[in-house]
């Protein structure tokens, strides 16, 4: 009895913490924790590059804080799950800025090459690394067309409960799977972009034709980066 009480208290505490970070108007409809994820949904993100400001890196900062990706002052080995990419057309010099992260492919090269199966795609479309079986061979980093992955080059001690990470394993954007499973229906980067008033990143269910992300894609279309590779990415871009 007392056990049940303490568990309920804990769940309430976690729920309250989640609700605090929610944007107004976003409903919390948490997935039943006992029910496995299904392929009825495919989580994805849509980036409108016209709304993305070149001098803004709110999404990057939010991601780093959400997962405590520490800046160790070693840019060549420090982990980056999301980065701001500037793309310039040499003809005319038009410049666009966009966030680049794991594209959560339907056919991910990192999953194909992983010898132990540690790189995997969850049925709801989120590509993850099972760090319990990752041996740190880094072949996925060789294979990823987006340079989306980072290897952890040093001991870490300040991991957060919802973001386990450690030396010797490869990691990348998890599409904030802990938020998704809690039903927050957003990611740290999308949330931060929203808060800053740019609304360049939209998170949602690509399988639901009535979701905002699907509607926007239906109306305006969206591009995959390196579409030629045929990976069917879960992160799409507009106005590239």
């Amino acid at each position: 009895m007392s056990l049940d009480l303490s568990r309920r208290e804990f769940l309430q505490g976690a729920g309250a913490a989640g609700a605090l970070t929610l944007a107004p108007g976003v409903f919390l409809h948490a997935k039943d924790p006992e029910v496995p994820v299904t392929d009825a949904v495919r989580w994805g993100m849509l980036v409108d590059t016209r709304l993305c400001q070149e001098d803004c890196d709110a999404c990057v900062t939010a991601c780093n804080e959400e997962h405590n990706l520490e800046d160790l002052g070693r840019p060549e080995t420090d982990a980056q799950w999301i980065r701001k990419l500037t793309v310039r057309d040499p003809l005319g010099g038009r410049t666009i800025s966009l966030p680049m992260m794991c594209q959560h492919c339907e056919n991910p090269p990192c999953v194909d090459v992983c010898p132990t199966g540690a790189s995997f795609r969850r049925v709801d479309g989120i590509v993850l690394v099972d760090k319990h079986t990752c041996i740190g061979c880094r072949y996925c980093m060789m294979a990823c067309p987006y340079k989306a992955r980072s290897f952890i080059h040093e001991n870490l001690t300040e991991q957060l409960p919802h973001a386990p990470r450690g030396k010797g394993c490869v990691e990348s954007c998890t599409m904030c799977v802990h938020k998704v499973d809690a039903g927050e229906n957003t990611t740290a980067c999308a949330e931060a972009c929203h808060k800053d008033g740019h609304q360049a990143i939209l998170f949602g269910d690509l399988n639901d034709p009535d979701s905002e992300i699907s509607k926007r894609i239906q109306e305006f279309g969206a591009t995959q980066i390196r579409a030629d590779l045929g990976l069917n990415t879960g992160v799409r871009y507009q106005n590239l």
């Binding site: 568990r7 924790p33 496995p36």
Partner: peptide
């Protein structure tokens, strides 16, 4: 619980490492 959470998104707390630490 580790594999259930990792692969299926099952996040029941009864047998989770997080829950061990809570108490």
């Amino acid at each position: 619980q580790r594999d259930e959470t990792m692969y299926k998104g099952i996040r029941t707390t009864r047998h989770s490492l997080k829950n061990c630490l809570e108490c």
